[in-house]
Design a protein around this nucleic acid. Structure first.
Length: 119
RNA sequence: CAAGUAAGCAGGGUGAUCGCGUGCGCGGAGGUGCACGAGGAAAGUCCGAGCUCCGUAGAGCAGGGUGCUGGGUAACACCCAGUGGGGGCGACCCCAAGGAAAGUGCCACAGAAACAUACCGCCGGCAUCCGCCGGUAAGGGCGAAAUGGUGAGGUAAGAGCUCACCGGCAGCCGGGUGAUCGGCUGGCCGGGCAAACCCCAUCUGGAGCAAGACGAAUAGGAAGGUGCGGCGCUUCGGCGCCUAAGGGCUGCUCGUCCGAGGCCUUCGGGUAGCGUCGCUUGAGGCGGCGGGCAAUCGCCGUCGUAGAUAGAUGAUCACCACCGGCCGCGCCGUAAGGGCGGUCGGGACAGAACUCGGCUUACGGCUUACUUGGACU
RNA sequence: GGCGACGUGGCCAAGUGGUUAAGGCGGGGGUCUGCAAAACCCCUAUCGUCGGUUCGAUUCCGACCGUCGCCU
């Protein structure tokens, strides 16, 4: 789980990031990134009913949040991130989601400079 | 051993590290310590209630639900015990199961005829013949359904026309709170569909925690156009009162309330917005005693058990149980099989969102009792 | 979380307790033609699934499955 200060909570924030942010993704998920003026780093997740029933949706969301929490220090400050799970994510393992998220973060330039070189 | 029927049980455990939510404590604060943290279905949202608001929820009609009897319950379409009917060799299981002499409607095709009837046949009369008239539901044929069934008597041929038994109906007597059961007597009795309209009995206001309450802020939104009966006051901007037209009260009527209210265009704001409450102790769980065949009820004792709001219970790992496959053993056993050790794999259905009582659906396993069949003693 | 509506050929859809379930767009085949177009003919349906009521169900009733919409 993420601490509350790093969570994206409001509906208007989600829609703004999705409309104006840069995007990258694959068959498992899509990432939107939007730079903001404040120094905060906020991450949100969206898992729709197309992914599955409540149990699988919860599992996908929890795994993605755990990966984001682990890698929080590698990300650039002052931006909002939104991860959107796609239906194929229902069958994905922890390692699959980990690889997908790392790739999406690299493509959108959301990582810190020294981390981008390794990614 | 195989196949099956019913009832019940629990839905792995312990620990470590990194995290999340709530409560309590400490601290000025960043924080930090301790405790607790998904289900039997949390699901589907199919019923029933609590609770909240609407204030026209009141009366009548309409509409909707239920439908064998008795009991349980806050209530139910649920549960228990019965009655009747149906299925199964059986243990057992299933049934929306009131009324078709209140009325209306429908019963395709086939068939002579589907609720009022004679096609073939049979019998009688007339007739040279073709055939015509009458009687007849025993037989043929049609159909999902055709005048109660079997046997005997009877008759021109037949027919409950008569008789016996069975089925059905009505009355009386008896048992039972009752559905209904048993016995006797009687006249001999003529379709189906009400998950067709309907009749009868009985219940029923509507919406739903995104209900709703409080607080902060905006805002008693602004501008323009248009419309407006009377009376009173007026600082001439307006304000108050009365009634008509009109409107609200989920369909209609009674009734009742609002009432010269407004309406149109443009702009701005809001749009499960923010915070707190509702929010978890409730028809509660467990144990004992007592009433009851049971569902369940009464009394006493005891326990404290999730409350999130982009929505908390996750990630990684170790060990021990459990199940399955494979391998090994100088283990037990005549054998099927079991035991020990190693290794690999597995653990279903599924995630609280106001709270309860049910129903339905999804799902891997264990235990007990019983039934049928086979083998052995 | 709550409330509601709808499922009929590939698509849009009408329909009703009864013999073979309208129509349009499309697709395939054929007739016509030197070849095509147009026109005409033919073909293309477990009525979402499973039970029940009925002699008979796409229709009536119930339970599931799926799709879509609404909430100030």
């Amino acid at each position: 789980m993420l601490p509350k200060q790093h969570r994206l909570l409001r509906t208007r924030d989600f829609t703004r990031v999705r409309r104006r942010g840069r995007s990258a993704g694959d068959s498992l998920l899509v990432l939107y990134v939007l730079p903001v003026r404040s120094p905060d780093l906020r991450v949100g997740f969206s898992v729709s009913k197309r992914v599955g029933k409540a149990v699988t949706r919860n599992r996908v969301k929890r795994v993605m949040r755990e990966i984001a929490r682990r890698d929080l220090g590698k990300m650039r400050r002052g931006q909002d991130l939104v991860f959107i799970a796609r239906p194929a994510a229902a069958q994905a393992t922890y390692a699959d989601l980990d690889a997908s998220m790392a790739r999406a973060l690299g493509k959108t330039g959301a990582l810190r400079a020294e981390e981008t070189r390794h990614a």
